[in-house]
C-alpha cells in the first residue's frame, strides 16, 4: 500500500545520517577489543539456551544409551510370576544360583496370575511361573505355551483374628470354614484380582454354596489388590483372608491375625512353569527360557527349592517328578 514518493530508498540503517558516523572511526579499536571478553556481556539468552538445551539433551542421550543398550548387552530372560511368589522371598534365594550356573539373568515381573498370563500371551515374558493349574492348562491348550510342568507346591492357609469370631479355628475343611465366616458375617478380605489365590478362593465359596458377591461391601470386601496389600487390609479390618503360606510367613504386618485353618487337601498350592511358545511370539528367548525351565525341574533346581527356609521351615516342596502333559 506504500509507494515511494520521495527518493528511492537504496540503503538501510547503516547509511543513515546518524551520529554514529563519527564514533565508528574513533571507538572501534579499544571497545571492540575488550568487550567480548566480558562473560556477562556475551551471556545473552541465546547462548544460555543453547547450553541449557544442550545439557538437557546430553542427560537424555546418556540415559537412553545407558538404559537402551544395557538390556541388549546382557543375557537375560523375563519371567512373569505372581506377587505371592515374590513376597515369599523365594526368587532372591533361587535366581542368583541359576544365574551363577547359567550366566542368564532372570528378570521377574510379579503380578497376579491372571495378569501374568496376559503378559505372557502378549509375548512380554519368556517364561510363566504361576499357580493356577486350570488357567495354565488353558494357556497351553490355546497354543501360547509349549508345555506345562509341575515345579513345586506349598499350601494355602486361612488367616483371621486370633479371637476367632467366626469360630473356625482348627477346622480341616476350608469350605466349612468359609460357610461359618458367612453365617457370622465376619469380615473377609478377598484379593479379587483374578490371581491364582483369588481363583481358588472362589472355588471354595462355590463348594460352600455361598455367593459372596451378594455381600460385597458388607462383610465381604473385594480389594482388587495383590497378596501383600490384601493382608495389610485384612490386618486393618481384622478380617479373614486366604493366603499362601509363604507370603503369610514372610509378612511383617500381621497385627492380631493368625492362621486359623490349614491342612485341607484343597488348599494345596501347586506351581507350574511354562515356556511361552516361540512359534506364537517370535521374540521369545526360547533357548535361555528353556534352560531356566529345565533347571527348575532338574535335580539341582529342585534341591535349591527345597533348601529355601522361611523362619526355619521349608517354604516350598519340589514335586517336578510328577510332570504332566
Amino acid at each position: 500500500m506504500v509507494s515511494a514518493i520521495v527518493a528511492p530508498a537504496k540503503a538501510g540503517v547503516q547509511e543513515q545520517p546518524a551520529g554514529f558516523a563519527a564514533l565508528d572511526s574513533r571507538s572501534r579499536g579499544p571497545l571492540a577489543g575488550d568487550s567480548p571478553a566480558d562473560p556477562r556481556r556475551g551471556n545473552d539468552e541465546g547462548d544460555a539456551f543453547r547450553s541449557l538445551f544442550a545439557s538437557l539433551i546430553a542427560i537424555l542421550l546418556a540415559t537412553l544409551l545407558a538404559s537402551g543398550t544395557a538390556p541388549a548387552a546382557d543375557r537375560f530372560i523375563t519371567v512373569a510370576s505372581t506377587t505371592s511368589t515374590q513376597n515369599s522371598g523365594l526368587f532372591e534365594h533361587l535366581l542368583p544360583q541359576f544365574t551363577r550356573k547359567s550366566g542368564i539373568e532372570v528378570r521377574v515381573i510379579a503380578v497376579g496370575t491372571g495378569q501374568a498370563i496376559k503378559l505372557a500371551e502378549k509375548g512380554d515374558a519368556d517364561v510363566l511361573l504361576v499357580h493356577h493349574k486350570p488357567s495354565e492348562e488353558k494357556f497351553v491348550a490355546d497354543g501360547f505355551g509349549v508345555k506345562r510342568l509341575d515345579v513345586m507346591y506349598n499350601d494355602f492357609v486361612i488367616v483371621g483374628p486370633k479371637t476367632d469370631p467366626a469360630d473356625v479355628k482348627g477346622l480341616k475343611d476350608a469350605s466349612a470354614a468359609f460357610k461359618r465366616v458367612a453365617e457370622k458375617k465376619a469380615m473377609f478380605a478377598s484379593r479379587s484380582d483374578d490371581s491364582g489365590t483369588h481363583k481358588l478362593e472362589l472355588e471354595l465359596w462355590k463348594a460352600a454354596q455361598i455367593d459372596p458377591k451378594a455381600h460385597s461391601g458388607v462383610w465381604y470386601r473385594e480389594l482388587g489388590s495383590g497378596m501383600g496389600a490384601t493382608l495389610n487390609t485384612a490386618t486393618g479390618l481384622s478380617a479373614h483372608a486366604l493366603s499362601d503360606r509363604a507370603s503369610w510367613s514372610q509378612f511383617k504386618n500381621k497385627g492380631d491375625l493368625a492362621i486359623l485353618v490349614e491342612g485341607d487337601p484343597r488348599l494345596v498350592n501347586q506351581y507350574g512353569v511354562i515356556l511361552v511358545n516361540p512359534a506364537k511370539r517370535k521374540h521369545i528367548k526360547a533357548k535361555d527360557g528353556q534352560a531356566f525351565v529345565d533347571w527348575l525341574v532338574s535335580a539341582d533346581g529342585q534341591k535349591t527349592i527345597a533348601d529355601y527356609k522361611i523362619g526355619g521351615e521349608q517354604g516350598f516342596f519340589p514335586n517336578a517328578a510328577k510332570a504332566t502333559n
Binding site: 554514529f20 571507538s27 571497545l31 571492540a32 568487550s35 556481556r41 545473552d44 541465546g46
Partner: peptide, 25 residues
Amino acid sequence: AAANILYALKLRGIPRPERERITAD
C-alpha cells in the same frame, strides 16, 4: 543494562563486534 542494549542490536541483525562497540558508546 548492557545486555538489554546488546539484545536490541542483535534483533536488528547487527554483527557482534559492532554490538559491543555501539553498546559501550
